[in-house]
Write a protein that binds this DNA or RNA. Structure first.
Lengths: 174, 174
DNA sequence: CTGATCATGTAATATGTTACATGATTGA
DNA sequence: TCAATCATGTAACATATTACATGATCAG
């Protein structure tokens, strides 16, 4: 269901769009919370059109199709947001690796943690750049919460890795 | 690969265990980073046995089988931890919902956020209880990083939701 | 005219969930 | 003896990834 909801949500927030647009939007906005390839997005859009959650208009060049969310589509996301339960916990490979850190020797674990810190810093740079950008089109609102969450999440991860590394260093010195 | 690595990691951290044990261990330790049902775990263990990453011993009552990680198994997780790249971003339904918050009316969004806060508080209570527990068997180490990350993540989420709610309240009063 | 990007799709495979199925052992 | 829990599995279905496949349009 989540992919479907993500697509309906994007259509509702950004207005009519093609599968191609949505694939890009996915990458540039919601990517750290959910991902999907075009090979999953295109079929899903067609299914939703069959079910009346979106309408299709075959217009643009190169067989471009524009999808628009319908009343029923809007109702569907809304229901989902308001009534469905907390849902499955996240599947996060980074956290899994954190969990498995104790299987490594201290120096190895340290290496992994330092790489994590570098990755977080790189990601933070990107997100902070987006945050600073004065003209985020349609975006006072749209994606604001997600950006904020992304920043907080990355900082949290960075801090964790830094403190874990420090702790390992301390205990291997003694 | 991740499920496989999670299983090998658990076997390496906790010692030999049955599929049943591992299913339970999954739930009680690594659950917030990765999940798997027994219907996925049993076949994976058998596949790994075929490939020599674990050995099986059919012993206990009720056809219980005990799996032990092999040298090759250990090498496999180690490689994975040290050499494979940052990997796919998390898929987190909670964050997706956060992203879609602007599709709701302010009062509705507020309701969702308040529920998020309640959920986080409940989860924090559980995690803090685990943290306080004096006798975590084999666990000064095992699961420590993951627990810490879990706590940080939940607090981060809680803070985010609280601040977002506050912001919505403020702007709807004006 | 040529490389980048736009634009859509399908097929094979891998991963994950839900439901079905069975039976042994243990403790009250 | 009966309910809970231990213990393993398979099948059907849903979801997601990778690779294959095709071609139009645009900017330099």
């Amino acid at each position: 269901m989540s992919l479907r909801m993500a697509l309906l949500g994007l259509l509702s927030l950004s207005g009519p769009a093609s599968g191609y647009d949505l694939t890009k939007l996915f990458e540039s906005s919601i990517n750290h919370a959910w991902q999907a390839r075009h090979s999953q997005i295109y079929p899903e859009l067609n299914k939703m059109a069959d079910e009346g959650l979106v309408t299709v208009e075959e217009d643009g060049p190169r067989g471009r199709k524009t999808y628009t969310i319908t009343e029923e589509g809007s109702r569907t996301v809304r229901e989902w947001m308001l009534t469905t339960s907390p849902a499955r916990p996240a599947r996060d490979e980074k956290t899994l690796r954190a969990f498995l850190l104790p299987t490594l020797k201290p120096e190895e674990a340290l290496g992994v943690l330092r790489e994590t810190i570098r990755d977080c810093d790189a990601k933070l740079a990107v997100l902070e750049e987006i945050e600073r950008r004065p003209s985020r089109p349609r975006t006072t609102g749209f994606g604001r919460y997600a950006l904020d969450l992304g920043l907080r999440h990355t900082r949290m991860m960075r801090d964790w890795a830094a403190e874990a590394a420090e702790e390992i260093e301390r205990s291997s010195r003694s």
